[in-house]
Amino acid sequence: MKVGLFFGSFNPIHIGHLAIAEAMISLSDLDEIWFVVSPQNPFKSSKSLLHEFDRLKMVELAIEDNFHFKATDVEFHMPKPSYTVDTLAYLVDKHPQHHFSLIMGSDNLSHFHKWKNHEQILAQHELYIYPRPENKDHQFENHPQIHWVEAPMMDISATYIRQMIQSQKSVKYLLQESVIAYIEDKKLYW
């Protein structure tokens, strides 16, 4: 089975993430999308990061009606900060029956050369790239392991969503109803 790994802090998971994942299933040869909830991204501050178990629960709620999607906490059990190359090695070892690929925005591709062991990742795994508004030319643009998928370009920011929640403004249509209910029930981001 071909599994696309969609890494993110998902702080919170929003309709932009879901639309991209659905496009990847519909427009590529991937069979499943696994949402890898990252405890801490090495390139991001953890200051405004909600607890990892809350973020995982929101992902589970958001994707519960789609059998092509799965939430995973694999990086919760790994050294922090977690690096993609280490997560890939762990998953390949635990699930040798699957072929793992990465899903990422074109904005991440522009600094992919800064990732730990990026050459190893590119040699052993395919990358499925979706467009982002700040798209530029990339040194890996025509690499044979890279597939461009015309997912919708949605410039929705989790930071914006958190600010809306903190201001007690509506986030309807930006988040799944079940995620909104979870946030309200637990009084998250207030």
Rank of each mutant, 00 (worst) to 15 (best):
M1Y: 02
K2Y: 07
G8M: 07
S9E: 10
F10I: 09
F10R: 15
N11V: 01
P12I: 04
I13M: 09
I20H: 15
A21E: 12
A23K: 08
A23M: 06
A23R: 07
D31R: 07
S38M: 06
Q40L: 11
N41H: 12
P42T: 04
F43G: 02
S45L: 04
K47P: 00
L49Y: 02
L49E: 13
L49S: 15
E52S: 12
F53Q: 15
L56M: 15
K57T: 13
M58Y: 05
V59G: 15
L61V: 07
D65E: 12
N66L: 03
N66G: 09
D73S: 15
F76H: 10
H77L: 04
M78I: 04
Y83R: 04
Y83T: 07
T84Q: 06
D86T: 03
Y90Q: 11
V92L: 01
P96L: 00
Q97V: 00
F100D: 05
I103H: 13
G105L: 09
S106P: 01
S106R: 03
D107N: 13
N108L: 13
N108G: 07
S110T: 13
K116W: 01
K116P: 13
H118Y: 15
E119T: 15
H125K: 06
E126T: 10
Y128N: 03
Y130K: 11
Y130D: 08
R132P: 00
R132F: 08
Q139C: 04
Q139W: 10
F140D: 01
E141R: 10
N142Q: 14
H143F: 04
I146A: 05
I146M: 07
V149S: 06
E150S: 15
A158P: 01
Y160Q: 10
Y160A: 06
R162I: 00
Q163W: 00
M164F: 05
Q166H: 10
S167P: 00
S167F: 00
Q168V: 01
K169Q: 15
V171C: 08
Y173P: 11
L174P: 07
L174W: 07
Q176G: 01
E177W: 02
V179T: 12
Y182M: 05
K186R: 15
